[in-house]
Amino acid sequence: MSLRAAVLGHPISHSKSPALHHAAYSQLGIGISYTAIDVTEQMLPSLMRQLRDQPGWRGLSVTMPLKSAMVSEVDEVRGVARTLGVVNTVAFEKHGSGSRAIGFNTDVTGIVNAVRHAGGGTPVEPVILGGGGTAAAAVAALTELGAGSALLFVRDPFRTPEVRAAAESLGLSLEIRPLTEAAEPTAAADVVISTLPPRAADGLAAEIAALKTSTSGVLLDVAYDPWPSLIASVWEAGGGAVVPGLEMLLYQAVEQVRLFSHLEEEVNASVIDVMCDAVGLPRRAL
């Protein structure tokens, strides 16, 4: 029986996940094929029904805009994904003659590792840009990093139910403001996590550049195509540390590989090295 895994999202052609996973499974010597499947929210229930009837599925990586919708399509949600109501990973576990779909969230680990390895300490004045499922993961990550509060800047303050719920569940004090007010607080922040889609932060980047002030904190821009993004370039020019979204993608993919391969200790430094090489990412020590 052939083993399979995939990344689901819309659009999905730009995804680097297949390169990361193929490199890992090749290094591990496991025959797991990994594909990208373009799926809208409306198509997701039908697709999940199909996958349940097909043997050999080990797991799914879940990206925009499916992370919240996937919660209703799995048999169980575990760990921080249950608190957030956001699933970016589905692992299929054997159950009798069939399997059960288990939802996880590895984005939180990805964000924590990305910020921590860029030199970010305990955030005192952190900022989150964007209000979707990845922003909810950013709330959990900031909590794990020791933050007690955060500013959230969004295009529509009324469309933030996941982030509000995450902050309330985790005890993080969250102040929500419109994105039009983000320039000065963002430039002054010690940690900034941008979960905005590609190019959506360009206007803000121009405003920060016009301030002609230093940016001494850490910026994680989850969007990694095109790279560098305008906000990353402006941030670096101001003296701040920049973490590409590709690095977060790597860290969360490492956790997915462990779940899909059913291996733990074998997913070690040598596996992470080949994953970095597959997407041209400089190696940082985990």
Rank of each mutant, 00 (worst) to 15 (best):
A5I: 05
T143I: 13
I37Y: 11
P45D: 08
E162S: 14
G96L: 05
E93S: 09
P185D: 03
E168L: 14
P226V: 12
P197C: 01
A200F: 08
E265N: 12
G103E: 09
A278D: 06
E41Q: 15
I231W: 06
M248D: 06
F260K: 02
V257M: 03
H95S: 15
D190K: 08
P198T: 08
T63V: 00
R258F: 12
C276E: 11
A69E: 11
W227R: 14
L249A: 04
D53N: 14
I176D: 01
L219S: 05
A118F: 01
N105Y: 11
D277C: 04
P18F: 08
G238R: 06
P65A: 02
S13G: 13
D190I: 02
S149A: 15
G217S: 06
E41F: 01
G119I: 01
N105M: 13
T89E: 06
H14V: 05
A232P: 05
R49E: 15
V234N: 05
R49L: 14
A135M: 10
A24T: 13
F260A: 05
P55V: 13
G148H: 13
R199L: 10
A6D: 09
A23D: 10
M43E: 15
T35G: 01
V62E: 04
R82N: 11
G217C: 05
V77L: 03
V62M: 01
K67C: 00
L84K: 06
A205P: 12
N88P: 01
L129D: 11
A141K: 10
G119L: 03
L8E: 01
A135S: 15
I32L: 15
R155N: 13
V112S: 03
V39K: 06
P244L: 12
P45E: 12
L145E: 09
V271L: 14
D38Y: 09
E41H: 01
A200D: 05
S194I: 11
R284H: 06
N113V: 00
G120E: 07
V279S: 04
S26F: 04
C276F: 07
V71R: 07
